[in-house]
Computed example of a mutant assay.
Amino acid sequence: MTACAVSDFGHGSGEAVPLAGESALRLLVVDDHPLFREALASAIALAFPKAELHEADGIGAACEILSRDSAIDLTLLDLSMQGVTGFEGLDTIRARFPRVPILIVSGVTEPRIMGEALRHGAAGFVPKAVDKATLTRAISEVLGGALFMPPDLATAPAPARGGDKAPIAERVARLTPQQMRVLGMIRQGKLNKQIAYELQVGDSTVKAHVSEILRKLEVISRTQIVIETAYLDFDQAGGGF
């Protein structure tokens, strides 16, 4: 499958949402429905008129674009495409390009699927039926290092995987030493930029760590991280903060 043409939508009309560094913003839309790609592109162009927008009609095409352009800031991905089952597309992009955050834009609205998408490394999830304001907020928050879920699902408990969810101490033990340090700072309420400054790493590295922490701890938000680890003895767990 070949990549779709790369588009730079230039200045759009309507009210734009300011974003730091917008002139360098690069977004990739991955969806096999041309009409939806066009509608999504129009919405993005209105909100971020200086952004450069790339399009792909499948996972292979998306990987080609990401391989060529290492400066892509965010991928907007549909889960349901031809030749893709379940989270295969998400897993493929996450494995090959772990530092590029992925916002799922899908027709699926089942909370269980949304939670699973975050466990597989997505940085956010919005249904295709959301309004432009919600889509814009989702993009802005994910670009800012936060996770995004629809407001009515943001505090929903993460679904257990068939009742076999491991105790929190065992899940924390899956983290690498650097992820443990990031976890400690999340528990202190620090933002991604603060964590990046203290660890002397880039924002994209912190985003990747946060996504992995969410996946390994089997939770869908920072709030759940704090709640689930509130009574854990980190000295005993090897945290060593």
Rank of each mutant, 00 (worst) to 15 (best):
R222S: 09
F125D: 01
T75M: 08
I102V: 15
P159A: 12
A3N: 12
K132D: 15
Q188V: 01
G10K: 07
T223H: 08
H120D: 00
G21S: 12
E116W: 10
K165S: 07
I227K: 12
A62I: 06
A62F: 03
F97S: 13
A133I: 15
G60C: 04
D164N: 02
S106F: 11
L183E: 00
T85F: 14
H54G: 14
V142L: 10
I44L: 06
F48Y: 14
V182A: 08
D8W: 09
L53I: 13
Q82H: 10
L53T: 14
V84Y: 10
A138C: 12
A45N: 15
S140F: 06
A129G: 10
A122Q: 03
A41Q: 10
E22Q: 12
L143R: 00
L217V: 03
V201T: 14
C4I: 05
R187F: 06
H120Y: 10
A20H: 08
R161Q: 12
R37H: 03
V182K: 03
H11W: 11
R171W: 03
E88V: 06
D78P: 03
R222M: 09
F48D: 05
L199G: 02
N192S: 13
V84P: 06
V30H: 06
A71V: 11
G144M: 02
C63P: 01
I220R: 03
Q236P: 03
D31T: 05
E64D: 14
A158Q: 06
V30T: 01
E15W: 07
P101L: 07
A41F: 07
V182Q: 04
A43K: 15
C4A: 11
S140G: 15
P159Y: 07
F241H: 13
D233Q: 11
V17Y: 15
I59R: 02
V126R: 01
F234T: 03
Q194L: 05
G240S: 09
E170N: 09
A51K: 07
Q82M: 05
A16N: 07
P159R: 15
K132F: 14
T85M: 10
I139N: 02
A133K: 15
D69C: 12
A196C: 02
K207L: 09
R171G: 09
L118R: 00
S140P: 01
A173R: 09
I113F: 08
I59K: 04
G184F: 11
K207R: 12
M149I: 00
L76M: 08
F36V: 10
R37I: 06
L35I: 05
